[in-house]
Write a protein that binds this DNA or RNA. Structure first.
Lengths: 253, 253
DNA sequence: CGTGAAGTTGAGTATGCTCAACGGTGGTGG
DNA sequence: CCACCACCGTTGAGCATACTCAACTTCACG
């Protein structure tokens, strides 16, 4: 049912990666399927969509597409974490979002991607030819509404992030980030009290609009003040959530 | 055809405003009409939508709706400039966008507005009951696609703004802003070489994530360097656009 | 012509950045 | 299997950008 293909490594910034990505069963909660069900698309039609999909795997740090590439493919994440970002010509990076299991990637306003996408962890995705989906959406208007809903949600989130980037202090940004990661972890079950943080400090900084050193310093400070416990660089236990919220929303001091 | 109503002034921050807003003919380029036409809505149905619309006028600094209000109305700007913004509990403001003639206001992801809207200049708008539009959209799927397209466009712009807020210097932000205002002015004809800036320095600062004094200083600097000419506080002539672009995109120095 | 808001300019300061050194860790190769 | 090495993270010191506070000017409106 699925063909499998691994995208070749880009020439730049090669990580040392040889592990195999474990295969996983088709995710019944995937966003495309969700939109399809919501739009009342018949199992038959959905199969057609899925038959035309390709299975893509990426290793950490590999690029899926780059801002300006022609947007001919739509992706849906099976497993793993991706990031989307924009860059200035001189190399400053702003990560505009992190995406994980079930999220859709590549719905663009033009026929060019307006941002780049890169794997934060090893990732496996479904790839759909964009035309294919468009055909289907034309037949199922309710699915368009669902896609529209997802876009509006994303817009609301990015405006929340604009408030953070434009008006919050470093401490407030980091506290907001921790709470967002914790909420995200809770939504996906788990919830053993420890929040996984798959991204590097550099990525967190580029997401929050601050330097990596500032991310590190804020985390150390929260740890020292007993608000969190740094289990290791990628596992954080949130201890005083109320206080973190107080900081995140600007009621600090 | 249109009932007219003026929203009462809010108790806070009352400007001195007594001028009458000049009435203007229904704008044939208005976004709702555009979506309607694109969606192949019959003139008859469109009349029904328009008959149900109310004409609203706002004076400078008046609030149209506030974050958290139930989102029961959709607005379309006939004439004037509005801003949408979010605030921290302690009063810091991030303006997420400016809207003007023909733009749509109030399409929300939940049933609550996720941001506040306030008039930058005197404004006149059409107001549509949201349910009304939803009914119509259900009958005309292509109109949904058009609305979806508008939302995606807005998302792309807000991600560009995230790059600005997270990674650009004050000079770069102000240069970007001037170019955006100039592009906007050119799109709406005019183009006598002078770009109108209806918003205050405070609003520009809250849009760019910098202090008003920093906005003022950057403008003075650009003026001194001959890149722009400050005709007056709300009229700026862009002289060296190439150099402004060079600054805006981070090729400064 | 008076008044209050908006804009400009200056001085001092603080937040967060840069540069640098050091410590930890995981993957790879010996 | 162990050791090495590159990358990631942390910490410190000095510095720069932009903020705050304040005074003064300009402008719009009455």
């Amino acid at each position: 049912m699925f063909s499998t293909e691994t995208i070749k490594q880009l020439p730049t910034a090669e990580p040392r990666q040889k592990k195999e990505i474990a295969p996983c069963a088709p995710c019944s909660a995937c966003a495309i399927r969700h939109a399809a069900q919501y739009g009342g698309i018949s199992e038959d039609d959905f199969s057609k969509l899925v038959t035309n999909s390709t299975n893509v795997t990426l290793h950490r740090n590999q690029t899926l597409f780059t801002e300006g590439d022609p947007a001919k493919q739509l992706y849906s994440i099976r497993h793993g974490t991706m990031m989307v970002y924009k860059m200035t010509p001189d190399g400053r990076r702003q990560i505009t979002g992190f995406l994980s299991d079930g999220d859709i990637l590549g719905l663009e306003s033009n026929d060019e991607y307006v941002r780049s996408a890169e794997a934060v962890t090893d990732v496996s995705l479904y790839r759909y030819p964009l035309r294919n989906l468009e055909n289907l959406l034309q037949r199922y208007p309710a699915a368009v509404q669902r896609i529209c809903e997802i876009t509006r949600q994303e817009l609301a989130e990015s405006q929340e992030q604009m408030l953070l980037l434009g008006r919050k202090t470093a401490r407030e940004r980091v506290a907001s980030f921790l709470l967002k990661m914790e909420r995200h972890a809770n939504e996906r079950g788990g919830g053993d009290g420890v929040t996984p943080i798959p991204m590097t400090r550099q990525m967190i900084g580029d997401y929050l609009g601050i330097a990596t050193e500032t991310v590190s310093r804020s985390l150390t400070e929260f740890d020292r003040d007993g608000l969190i416990s740094l289990v290791n660089a990628h596992q954080i236990r949130l201890i005083d959530i109320a206080e973190l919220e107080s900081i995140a929303f600007g009621r600090d001091q």
